[in-house]
Structure formats: C-alpha cells, structure tokens
C-alpha cells in the first residue's frame, strides 16, 4: 500500500500526537518512531516538521513541555498531555468516529473504529 497523503497526515496529526501522549510522556524523536511503528511505516513525520506541530499544540495548551534527563543521560524536551488536551482528544475521537461511520456507510462496510 502506498503512503498516506500529506493532507491526511496533516489532518490526523493532532489526534495521533494527543493519543500517543495520553499513554505516556514522550519526546519528539520517540513520537516519530512510535508513529512510524504503529502505522507500519505508512506515516512518517519529517524530522523538522513535527516540532512546530508540538509547539502549536503547546501554545493551545493541549500539551505541556519540560526538559528532563532521559535514561541515556541525555537532556531531552518531553511533552505530556494536559487536561485541556484530554478533552480535545475525546472530541477528536468523536469527530473521527463520525467521519469513519460516514465513509463506512458510503462504502457499505462496517465501522471498525471504536
């Protein structure tokens, strides 16, 4: 299967990032690797393009950041989801479920997103 279009990657970046951070705090490099792994390589965020998205989410107060010494002894900027971010994630889930249902109806297949 071909890689997903840039537009769709861009549109889905907020729910994906918020979902990852809702499970655990993380840093840029790890988020990129996580997304790549979960999507089986179909979604690959550009190294330099993820950070502006994270900063945008931080400005919207959906996530919080702080510098922390990682396990490897290297200082990294970690991100974690905020309460506002958790609410936003719920809303994103509802929206994407609706979209999934509509598309599924149109294509006459059963919705599989829970």
């Amino acid at each position: 299967m071909e890689k997903i279009s840039k537009e769709l990657i861009g549109a889905s970046s907020i729910p994906i990032i918020l979902s990852i951070l809702s499970k655990n705090e993380s840093y840029g490099y790890e988020i990129i690797q996580n997304v790549k792994e979960i999507s089986n390589g179909k979604i690959e965020y550009g190294d330099g393009t993820l950070y502006p998205v994270l900063h945008k989410l931080e400005k919207k107060e959906l996530i919080e950041s702080y510098w922390k010494m990682g396990e490897s002894g290297r200082k990294r900027k970690y991100y974690k989801i905020s309460n506002k971010g958790k609410k936003q994630l719920l809303s994103e889930k509802e929206n994407w479920t609706i979209i999934n249902q509509i598309i599924s109806k149109l294509w006459k297949i059963e919705p599989s997103l829970t």
């Binding site: 840029g28 490099y29 950070y51 200082k75 990294r76 900027k77």
Partner: peptide, 16 residues
Amino acid sequence: LDNINELESHLLDEID
C-alpha cells in the same frame, strides 16, 4: 534557542 536545543537533542538521537 529552546527550539535549536530541542533539534540538537533530536540530531543526537538520529546520529546514535
């Protein structure tokens, strides 16, 4: 400066 330090940390992970 904070952006650049963050990218430096990313660069080091990538190099590793």
